[in-house]
């Protein structure tokens, strides 16, 4: 028999996880650089626009971005699994649209209508999942295809995009957007709940671990016995059902459905997810990061609004601030090239 391997005591190269204090400071600065830039903007707006720090305005920001947050969380999940979902706009539309149809044309209760909306979203996700898992189309093209088809379906049934109003909406359904739970606006409560759910799912559960593994190196996940297809199906359906909820909230607020309106959330949610991922040491999409991303977008747009700038100038500034903030926060952190090993 052989002797046991030498103990690690005789290895002078043994690892020390604690490195210098200065290094850690640099590390955390680069990690939280974006958060610092974010707070700099909060301070700036607080000084330049008196109304900005009013509690009611802060609640406004949260409420106004609840829908985006829900969509961005769903996007986080899909991106973590290694894909992307360009059809979230469709799931948003379908959620609200079918909920309204369920109530208006079939007289269903608000709860059933909610369920119908979520199922409509899930149906969109099912199509995505089938395309990705069965037909092996890349998520990017698959969801782009779903987007084209879904847009077309909406145009066909709304004669090219006519609105679908429903003024007699029940109060209970309305309260999904306008109500409050313990004094907190329902939208915020819903977004918070979804956020918590996603946090547990993605960052604390075994399923999240597996989804991350699939996203990072699919073949390894597969060889390790993880049911890759099953998880991908889950991811696409769950994400689409989640964004359908934002669609439902939107229609509840407006008492009508506007076809093709979900598209406007696509780029913002992608931006939020990737801002969040940039803050992660391994550049992984993560729930907390996405939240920061959404809040940043929301704060900048709200702040510029309060400053009473010209409409067109405001749009320009929003973009320029985004570029500047990213550049400011992430320049000089240890660069990509340095991390690549062979």
């Amino acid at each position: 028999m052989t002797s046991t391997p030498p103990s690690s005591a005789d290895t002078p190269t043994a690892v020390t996880t604690r490195s210098g204090w200065g290094r850690r400071l640099v590390d955390s600065l680069s990690r939280y650089g974006f958060v610092i830039v974010f707070f700099a903007f909060v301070v700036f707006f607080a000084v330049r626009a008196d109304a900005f720090l009013n509690p009611s305005n802060l609640v406004n920001i949260l409420e106004g971005n609840a829908v985006l947050l829900i969509a961005a969380l769903a996007m986080t999940l899909v991106v973590a699994s290694g894909g992307i979902d360009l059809s979230i706009g469709i799931a948003i539309d379908f959620g609200g649209w079918f909920a309204i149809i369920a109530m208006r044309d079939y007289n269903l209760t608000w709860a059933s209508a909610l369920l119908v909306g979520l199922l409509a979203g899930a149906a969109v996700g099912t199509l995505n999942a089938a395309l990705v898992v069965r037909l092996k189309i890349s998520p990017f093209l698959a969801t782009l295809g779903t987007f084209f088809i879904g847009s077309s379906v909406q145009q066909i049934y709304t004669s090219g995009g006519g609105q679908v109003p429903f003024r007699e909406m029940s109060e209970s359904f309305r309260s999904l957007s306008t109500g409050a739970v313990l004094g907190i606006p329902t939208e915020i409560v819903l977004a918070g709940t979804v956020g918590l759910l996603y946090f547990v799912l993605l960052e604390r559960s075994v399923h999240g671990k597996r989804i991350h593994a699939i996203g990072l190196q699919r073949s390894v996940a597969s060889v390790s016995g993880i049911r890759v297809s099953g998880y991908l199906v889950f991811v696409f359906i769950f994400a689409s059902a989640t964004v359908a909820l934002s669609g439902i909230i939107l229609t509840a607020g407006l008492r009508q459905f506007t076809p093709l309106s979900g598209f406007s959330y696509l780029l913002d949610s992608i931006a939020a997810v990737f801002i969040g991922a940039s803050m992660h040491p391994q550049r992984r999409p993560n729930v907390a990061g996405t939240l920061v991303g959404v809040l940043f977008l929301g704060v900048v747009s709200n702040g510029l609004n309060l400053m009473g700038l010209d409409f067109n100038l405001r749009d320009a500034l929003e973009g320029i601030i985004l570029v500047g903030a990213l550049a400011l926060a992430f320049t000089n952190r240890n660069n990509r090239a340095a991390e690549v090993s062979i």
Binding site: L216, S219, V220, S224, G225, I226, Q282
Partner: peptide, 17 residues
């Protein structure tokens, strides 16, 4: 290609299955 999720920690890789 099939052995390790290179960007995960050692513990994650050991426990993956």
């Amino acid at each position: 290609n099939d052995g390790l999720v290179l960007d995960m920690t050692v513990a994650d890789n050991v426990n993956l299955a």
